[in-house]
Write a protein that binds this DNA or RNA. Sequence first.
DNA 1: ATAATTGCAAAGGATTTGCACGAGT
DNA 2: ACTCGTGCAAATCCTTTGCAATTAT
Lengths: 171, 171
Amino acid sequence: MMSVNQAKEVDENLVKEKEAAFAEYIQRKGLKTTRQRNTIISVFFRLRGHISVEELLNEVKKVNPRIGYATVYRTLHLLVESNLVEERRFGDGLARYEGHSDVEHHDHMICLECGMISEFFNPRLEALQEKLAEENNFQIYRHRLELYGACKDKDACNKRKNSKAAEARGA
Amino acid sequence: MMSVNQAKEVDENLVKEKEAAFAEYIQRKGLKTTRQRNTIISVFFRLRGHISVEELLNEVKKVNPRIGYATVYRTLHLLVESNLVEERRFGDGLARYEGHSDVEHHDHMICLECGMISEFFNPRLEALQEKLAEENNFQIYRHRLELYGACKDKDACNKRKNSKAAEARGA
DNA sequence: ATAATTGCAAAGGATTTGCACGAGT
DNA sequence: ACTCGTGCAAATCCTTTGCAATTAT
C-alpha cells in the first residue's frame, strides 16, 4: 500500500545509468560534454536526498574548486530539462534537487523538528486525486503533496536534530 | 464529497468581519490602527483569489498612491500572523495571499494554461493522508496539495488566457 | 510624550546573465 | 574553425531592513 524510500546506499549501477542518460541527452541536444558537467552530475547522482545548490556546490568544489555557482545552476537546469532530476521547493526559500529514485513519483513528509524528509507513494491517493480532477473537468499533469509535521519517534528525531546542529557548528 | 469555491462576489458581511477581526488583533498586540493599514486590508479583503503583492499594491495605489511595497509587505505579514490570511507559493517564485474562505482548509488545482486556481476539499483525501502519516509514525501539522494541469473546458480556458494577456498589455 | 508606523532607498539572498576567455566537436 | 561552455562579476527579482520623519495612542 505504501512504500518509503529511505535506503542509505546509492546504487552504483543506477548512477551509471543516469550518467549515460545525461550524456545521451547532451548529445541529442547538440550540446557539449565537459569536465565540469561530468563532475557535477557525477557528484550529484552519488548524493542522496534533496540537495540544495549550495550543498551540491560544496561537494563539487572538493573535486574541482574552480567550479562556481553559475555552472552548477546551469547544469542543474539541464538535468531538470532532461527529466533526470526534479526541482522541489519546501518553503524555506531555496530550491532543492532530487535525482529520480526508483519510485517514479512520490510525495513527501517533512519533519519541522529535525528536517527529515521522507518519501512515500500511495496508489489510492493518486486515484483519488484523479477522481477529484475528473469531477472538476480538470486534467492533472503533475501534482505535489507535502505533509508538514513531526516525527513521533522523538529519540530518533532529536538525534537527527542534534547531529544537524553539530554539523552546522562544524561547518 | 467535494466542494469548489468559485463564487464571483465578495460577501460584504464577511469582509466587515475580517476587518473587525484584524482591528481586534492589532489592538490585542498593542499595535496601531493607521490609514494605510485600513486601506490595504480593505482593498485586500475585497479582492478574491490568490493575490500577489504586486497585484495588491496596484489596487492599493488606486486608493492611495503614496503607499509603497514596504507597507504592503508589512501589513500582509500582520495578516498572516493574525491568521486571517494564508501565504501560498505556487512555484512561480512569488508569494500569493489568500483571505481565508469559508472553507477552513482546502487544496488547489492550478491550470498551467490560463492560470486559473480553483480550490477543493475532500474528506477522504484528508483521512487518507492521516492514515499514511500514522503508518509512518508521523504527525501532520499541516499539508499542501497542488494539482497542476489544464482545464478540460478549452473554450473557458482560452477565454481566461486571452483576457489575462489583454490585461498584461493594458498594464 | 511615547512608541509604533511610514516611505524611501539601500541591503539581502537566491538565481540569472553578459561577456571575454577557454574548451569540445 | 566554429560553437558552446565556463567563470567571474554585475544584474535581476522578490523581499526585508535602516532610518529619519510622521502619526496613533
